[in-house]
Every structure is written in C-alpha cells, then in structure tokens.
C-alpha cells in the first residue's frame, strides 16, 4: 500500500522510503541519520561485546583463565583487529556515536515539548514553530561534533600510518 497504492509494499520499497530524505528538509535528514546511526552502532555494540569477550578467551571460558592462555587469546584477537578496515570502521563509529548522542538529546527535548516553538496563528512564509532555531542549532551541533569525532579518529589513524 505504498507509493503507488497498488498491493502491499515490499521491504525494499519501505527501506527506500526510510533511507531517502528527499526534499523534505532538515528534520527528515535527522530522521534518516538517527535511524542509520542507531542500527550501525547497535551492530557495532554486538560486535564489541563479542570481541571483548574474545580478549579473555571466547565463549568457552567462564572463569578466570591461566595467564598464558589469556595472553594467547589476547594476542590472537589483536592480530584479527589490526586491520585498516576496522580502523576506518572505528572512525565511522565515532562519527555515528557523536551524531546519535547529540541528535538523541535533541529528540528527547522535542519529545518532552522543550525547545519547540509555541502553537500560534499560522502566517504565510513563516516556518512551522516546531522547526525552531534551538532545535536546528542542536542538529547542526550534532553534525559538527560528529565531523570532529571523525576527523579526530582519522587523524590518529594517519599518524599511525606515518613512520
């Protein structure tokens, strides 16, 4: 029952609507970014719990292991993670976490009715009160901090590559 109203929509059609901000403006971009960052960071979180679990020996270990065993497990995990793909991935995660955090605060404020304008008589060519300056400022702050986090991690990465 999606775009064309003919038949029921497939997951791919809904995914397309969910991921394309179109020409609806800043708030729609925030919706898409919050959604994507939420899913990606959740997947990172699952991977992070599994990976830190491997540092102490993996799923078979449920007590404090021998030092030599733990050291070997640690070395193996480090070998797996020493990989430019994971490095760049971590920089992206930094970007997404910063974005999701600050934008999330913006959404919590909006959900509790703070930082929005008050209902007023509509006037021609004036933006809706919910698209308030405060809301948009926090959105741009989240983007700035996310870019800062991305640049910071990328810079660290570059220095690692430098001899």
């Amino acid at each position: 029952m999606l775009a064309r109203g003919v038949g029921r929509s497939s997951v791919f059609q809904t995914l397309k609507v969910m991921l394309t901000p179109g020409r609806y403006g800043l708030e729609r971009w925030s919706y898409v970014l919050q959604r994507v960052s939420g899913v990606v960071v959740s997947l990172y979180f699952i991977a992070h719990v599994l990976e830190t679990g491997n540092f102490v020996g993996g799923i078979t270990v449920w007590g404090v292991p021998e030092y030599s065993f733990a050291e070997r497990a640690y070395e193996e995990t480090v070998k797996l993670l020493k990989n430019p793909v994971f490095d760049v991935g971590l920089a992206v995660i930094g970007f997404l976490v910063a974005l999701h955090t600050i934008n999330g605060i913006r959404l919590i404020l909006a959900h509790f009715g703070f930082s929005l304008g008050r209902p007023r008589r509509p006037e021609p060519f004036s933006p809706p009160p919910s698209f308030s300056t405060k809301q948009r400022a926090i959105f741009w702050l989240s983007i700035s901090l996310a870019v800062f986090a991305l640049l910071y991690t990328l810079d660290s990465l570059m220095r690692v590559f430098r001899p």
């Binding site: 708030e27 729609r28 919706y31 809706p128």
Partner: peptide, 15 residues
C-alpha cells in the same frame, strides 16, 4: 520520530 515532513508540506501552516 519527528521527521518533520508533515509540517514541511502542510499548505496551511498547521505544524
């Protein structure tokens, strides 16, 4: 999720 598309397209400024 406050995507705001509704308010962006409203022809009467209803928000």
């Amino acid at each position: 999720h406050f995507a705001g598309s509704c308010s962006a397209v409203c022809p009467k400024g209803v928000d």
